[in-house]
Design a protein around this nucleic acid. Structure first.
Lengths: 190, 190
DNA sequence: TGGCTAATGCAAATATCTTTGCTTTAGACT
DNA sequence: AGTCTAAAGCAAAGATATTTGCATTAGCCA
């Protein structure tokens, strides 16, 4: 069979399932546990490989270095495709959205992943920022009472304060914090 | 002279001047230039030592590792003791404060330092957060028309949005951004 | 001025990380 | 079932980073 079909080596030829997925899963949970234990600063590929029961060379070939790996895995941490339950009431929807974000980053390993992602942000467009922007847009889309509130407003008034605390002072982040920013938004947005 | 004065080995016995200061200065500017050139991710102690014309072992002994070093140097980047010229007019003072912060972090090396600091934040209290908080307090202290605006308000409405962009999308940060947050603050704070 | 000593310089020894060539495994397609 | 091949395993070589003991330098204090 000389001239077989010339398969283009496109994404459909990849094999995301099977052994790759197995490795990915093991790496993912190993990253979480290691980061929770010792932070992201001293995390190395060999260390991670050992915990995951995988060859370091596999990780090097797949991600190149630890910061790419962390950045890649951090992307999927707060599922961008998760359903937002929207009622059409701006304040109410923003509140549950913010609560969800805070709950997510209240887990130390998730906060650590965000910080790790932050370290390598600034060059490429950040997934954290992009996803939050998309969600903010979806909320405004559905809102019956959005007034002249913009996506930027939601990022500035809700996401930014939360993320700022997640990074720099995770300990004073809780439901009451969500309450503060949302109440403040409700008081002034129209 | 058998039993000499028993000097306590406290901070007064340190020698921050002279050769140490020389090394510190060289390291500091080397960090900046290297970070501006290649980002903080791949920065290593030997690399830095070579650029600074200093022995790696000196840096290891003084800081232990690269992230401690970066975190330490980042502290002094936006001088916490710089004079804030306060007029007593809240909006005006906030505007110049915000402008100063944006100007500072518009330099890529300063933004990179912040990200590097962010990576190791979350355990100790962050200097970035502490200094901004102190400045916000000073502004409110002087303001004749602060109303019921709080330090937290200024952090949430001004600092957080700026820092969020510095970290995740430095390219869309400029005077017009300052304008946006300050105008928004002026419109709703009372 | 002269001793005292923190901090650095230097260099060798280790420890770790990273790359690379080759082999093996196991999905995917016929 | 059989073939093809992306991805993983393995192991050795190479490159870097880190530690450590000893020598030297230069502030500091008497």
């Amino acid at each position: 069979m000389a001239v077989a079909h010339v398969h283009k080596m496109d994404a459909t030829n990849r094999r995301p399932g099977g052994r790759s997925a197995e490795v990915l899963g093991r790496v993912r949970s190993s990253v979480e546990s290691l980061i929770a234990e010792r932070g992201a600063e001293s995390l190395t590929i060999p260390m991670l490989a050992e915990r995951a029961g995988v060859q370091p060379s596999s990780l090097y070939r797949r991600w190149g270095d630890i910061s790419s790996l962390l950045n890649d895995l951090a992307t999927y941490k707060l599922d961008p495709d998760r359903p937002l339950t929207l009622t059409g009431n701006l304040v109410e929807d923003v509140r549950s959205w913010a609560t969800e974000i805070v709950a997510h980053y209240s887990k130390p390993e998730n906060a650590a992943m965000l910080r790790a992602g932050a370290a390598s942000a600034g060059t490429r467009e950040s997934d954290c920022l992009r996803h939050r922007r998309a969600e903010a847009a979806a909320i405004l889309e559905q809102a019956r009472d959005a007034g002249d509130t913009t996506v930027e407003d939601l990022l500035n008034r809700v996401t930014a304060p939360i993320i700022y605390r997640v990074i720099f002072s995770p300990w004073d982040l809780g439901v009451e914090f969500v309450d503060g920013v949302v109440t403040d938004l409700a008081r002034t947005a129209r």
